[in-house]
């Protein structure tokens, strides 16, 4: 999987939000907020191709968290990205 281009993570007033970078309308009603873990996973995903396993591995390397919890979190994160159509399947 890959993140679609033209979106970027920004910190706004201490909150992590995903905002389109092209010249287009930004709908503040459907803006995507990410928590700290979400922001970490976004930065990992931004690096290029990713899979559920690669994100889980990155999360486990960064945070002290049980593997099954990491897996669930990553799955939820990716599901959310797909729901918001931010992911391009390769």
């Amino acid at each position: 999987m890959k993140l679609k281009p033209n979106f970027e993570l920004r910190t706004v007033c201490g909150e992590n939000v995903v905002i389109p970078t092209g010249i287009e309308n930004v709908n503040f009603d459907s803006i995507i907020h990410l928590n700290e873990t979400g922001a970490f996973l976004w930065r990992e995903a931004e690096k290029g191709d990713f899979t559920l396993d690669s994100l889980t591995a990155a999360l486990l390397a960064e945070y002290e968290v049980a593997e099954d919890i990491a897996k669930t979190d990553v799955a939820a994160f990716v599901a959310k990205l797909q729901e918001q159509k931010l992911v391009a399947e390769v």
């Binding site: 920004r10 706004v12 007033c13 010249i23 287009e24 309308n25 930004v26 709908n27 503040f28």
Partner: peptide, 17 residues
């Protein structure tokens, strides 16, 4: 988020809120 709205508009976006 209003200052950010101003920034986005300066960059040429339109913003719906």
């Amino acid at each position: 988020l209003i200052p950010e709205v101003g920034k986005l508009i300066n960059e040429g976006h339109t913003v719906t809120m």
